[in-house]
Simulated scan of single mutants.
Amino acid sequence: MANFFDFGLTLDLLRLPFVQLALVVAVVLGLLAGVLGPLIVSRNMAFSVHGTSELAFTGGAAALLLGWDIGNGALAGAIIAALVLGLLSRRSSEYDSVIGVVLAFGLGVGVLMLYFYKGRASNKFGLLTGQIVGQDFASFALLMACAAGVFAVLAVIYRPLLFASVDPEVARARGVPVTALALVFAVLVGVATALGVRTVGALLVLALMVTPAAAACRVTASPLRATVLSVLFALVSAVGGIILSLAPGAPISAFVTAISFVIYVVCWAVGRARGLTRA
């Protein structure tokens, strides 16, 4: 139990190259999650992120079984999930049921693939809960290339996407391609989710992609301020989760989730106090 608060050991571990690389990865993931998060929340896509992460897990499990790179497998699985969810759920009334069907199927196939995988058990566990040693320069290069692509596409479509997220009916009447933007955004979310699987794990990547943004939306209605706060909260959760996980050697996702939850509770209390004061 004492190792959970061994600051000397934590400082020693922070000097290791693979830990420093993981911290850089956490910063990139925090930026991605922070920027995409408010749009995910405004579009009610939290369940979609969970479904996408399960398909990213399935892709990673398939890559693990076939001896391929886990990051590439997770990325392929997430993109396929985003396209499938976008094409099968054209009506909002069908969206949750389609996600539930795809999620259950993907999770079942992924578990079956892990059963057939005869390699190290740590690889299986890390795919589900994240692991700091899963970062290498090949996965880092993939991360940076995908992150740059996501930010580039988002910079082009952000204004019409925000318009379509806030008021889709008016946006459609103004000639904004709402359906096409939804599909593109789903792919962007899928890519970002897949990138988080190796660090945070497939089961709890939702904590990084949604919780910081949900906390930010509790204290502000401004899209700009919500994005800034979401980025800040996501960075604190991702970087703080890695640092706290070093000494005990515990899964990163547990600490990322805990930090995100504490931030959300504080923002919820602040938002509620403001509402009571105004009332």
Score class of each variant (00 low, 15 high):
111 V>M: 14
211 T>K: 07
249 G>N: 11
12 D>M: 09
100 G>C: 06
9 L>Y: 05
225 R>S: 07
271 G>T: 11
166 V>D: 02
175 G>N: 09
72 N>D: 07
38 P>I: 13
205 V>L: 10
123 N>V: 00
82 A>P: 01
71 G>N: 12
38 P>M: 14
163 F>P: 01
236 V>K: 01
235 L>A: 08
228 V>N: 01
243 I>D: 09
22 A>F: 01
184 V>D: 04
185 F>G: 05
30 G>K: 15
215 A>Y: 06
147 A>G: 09
279 A>V: 10
236 V>E: 03
145 A>S: 12
277 T>I: 12
172 R>P: 04
67 G>N: 05
129 T>D: 04
19 V>W: 08
161 L>T: 08
29 L>P: 03
217 C>I: 06
46 A>I: 08
203 L>N: 04
37 G>Q: 01
70 I>K: 04
215 A>N: 11
91 R>M: 00
222 S>L: 10
46 A>H: 05
177 P>H: 03
217 C>M: 15
96 D>I: 06
245 S>V: 11
25 V>D: 11
23 L>S: 11
184 V>K: 02
176 V>D: 06
229 L>S: 09
226 A>T: 04
111 V>S: 12
10 T>I: 14
213 A>S: 15
210 V>G: 11
126 G>S: 12
121 A>R: 10
11 L>F: 12
136 D>F: 00
101 V>W: 00
232 L>D: 03
74 A>R: 00
242 I>C: 13
47 F>Q: 10
229 L>R: 05
167 D>T: 12
203 L>I: 14
162 L>T: 08
73 G>W: 01
150 V>A: 08
278 R>A: 11
116 F>S: 14
270 V>P: 04
47 F>I: 13
250 A>P: 05
238 A>Q: 10
81 A>G: 07
191 V>G: 02
61 A>N: 03
279 A>N: 07
208 L>N: 03
22 A>P: 03
185 F>V: 08
70 I>E: 07
184 V>A: 13
62 A>H: 01
133 V>Y: 10
1 M>L: 10
178 V>R: 05
94 E>D: 13
266 V>R: 02
253 S>A: 15
56 A>E: 03
208 L>Y: 02
228 V>Y: 06
15 R>S: 14
176 V>E: 07
155 A>C: 01
15 R>Q: 15
190 G>S: 09
146 C>E: 01
48 S>D: 02
131 Q>L: 02
92 S>E: 14
177 P>Y: 02
262 V>S: 12
57 F>W: 03
137 F>V: 15
54 E>W: 00
146 C>T: 11
227 T>Q: 04
117 Y>I: 02
272 R>H: 05
54 E>D: 11
53 S>Q: 00
217 C>S: 14
22 A>Q: 04
161 L>A: 09
92 S>H: 07
179 T>Q: 13
212 P>H: 06
191 V>K: 01
219 V>L: 09
249 G>E: 13
204 L>W: 02
205 V>A: 12
146 C>Q: 05
187 V>Q: 09
253 S>Q: 09
155 A>T: 03
247 A>Q: 13
233 F>T: 08
34 G>L: 04
275 G>Q: 09
95 Y>N: 10
225 R>I: 04
177 P>V: 06
164 A>C: 10
197 V>N: 04
32 L>P: 05
255 F>S: 14
133 V>R: 04
107 L>M: 15
